[in-house]
Design a protein around this nucleic acid. Sequence first.
DNA 1: ACCTGAACACCGTTCAAGT
DNA 2: ACCTGAACACCGTTCAAGT
Lengths: 206, 206
Amino acid sequence: MDASIELLDISGESGLTFRALCERLATGPGAIYWHIANKSDLMTAACDAIVARMMGANVAGATPKATIRAVALGVFDAIDAHPWVGSTLTSPAGWLPMVRILEPLGQQVRALGVPDKEQWATVSALLHYILGVGGQNAANGQLARTQGLDRGDFLEAVATMWAQLDPHEYPFTRSLAGQVRAHDDRMDFLAGIDLILRGIDSPRRR
Amino acid sequence: MDASIELLDISGESGLTFRALCERLATGPGAIYWHIANKSDLMTAACDAIVARMMGANVAGATPKATIRAVALGVFDAIDAHPWVGSTLTSPAGWLPMVRILEPLGQQVRALGVPDKEQWATVSALLHYILGVGGQNAANGQLARTQGLDRGDFLEAVATMWAQLDPHEYPFTRSLAGQVRAHDDRMDFLAGIDLILRGIDSPRRR
DNA sequence: ACCTGAACACCGTTCAAGT
DNA sequence: ACCTGAACACCGTTCAAGT
């Protein structure tokens, strides 16, 4: 498991190869297949190890909203440190690691007094926002690293691309180009969380 | 392009193969590589074709919120019909198809009067929620199809799995098990959109 | 019960050679 | 300018054979 995570961290999903793993463990593919069913299971197990480790660090005693923010930031940082976790989490096979995140979010949503009927849509919004932004952020970081750019260079490249879009067809995205240069990933991420939390507070109409 | 989309629809990302595509087009790999750089570009182009086709169907004249809901449902249904679009959209290479969705959302967010500084976090929340739930829904559908289950059987299987979780460690997820059997994917999806829209309406604190 | 390692059936991609 | 198709360097996975 440790060897798999190391390989994934070094060079992503394509870096985890049965041949590379065999070399690392000084063994043959048959030995590995004795313990796991296939590569998908191996990825899920590696992902689950990361998620379980991260969730274990959570503390109790804070307010529901503070706990939600803490869980969100924990997932964000974990995906940032292990970019492959993002895509593995959302892959159909990986429902168990996902439940590990869904559970604490759900507990806090319930503590906030959201009625039973609306709890699923609420956790759903939180969960997918967290995984979505986390995954995007990690993918950006990896793409930048692949092209040998630092964060500033990368944002500059994105801003330039967006600024070159057709002004008639893409007025909004173009207007974003300026902001993107100076933005703070974690702060913007938290602003989105707070937006959803405000939606939870606000009364439903029908 | 049409042949690629057909292959992807039939058997997902692993179904699009240069060999399968060559057979379909009665040609060799060299001919394909003359027109595209690699498989990643091919996937992105196929994805962009689907997204462009979908966004073209959008009508003007509705209220901002109605338009946001329409775009959201359009993406949801497109991913449901072409499950591979979900993962391709969120892959780092596919920023152009993503901008096609971001743009109309942003225009409506702006029309709702969201201040400049908060527009990015707002579209971000909408976009990632839409792509996240859409992708999850499509992945579930595909997983069900792979195992030869219909929707009811699949939800039953998920409910059973969740109901078997440790009651002390997973009280929330367990309590969801009952609801999941009777839920409506599209309705729950829209409930999440409305939650975020309420967050947009509600005043910021600081 | 667990490991070895050759072999199988694939991949994406390249490139000299053709038209 | 565009296509052909053999070849290269890989994959995940299996399975008879060992200990």
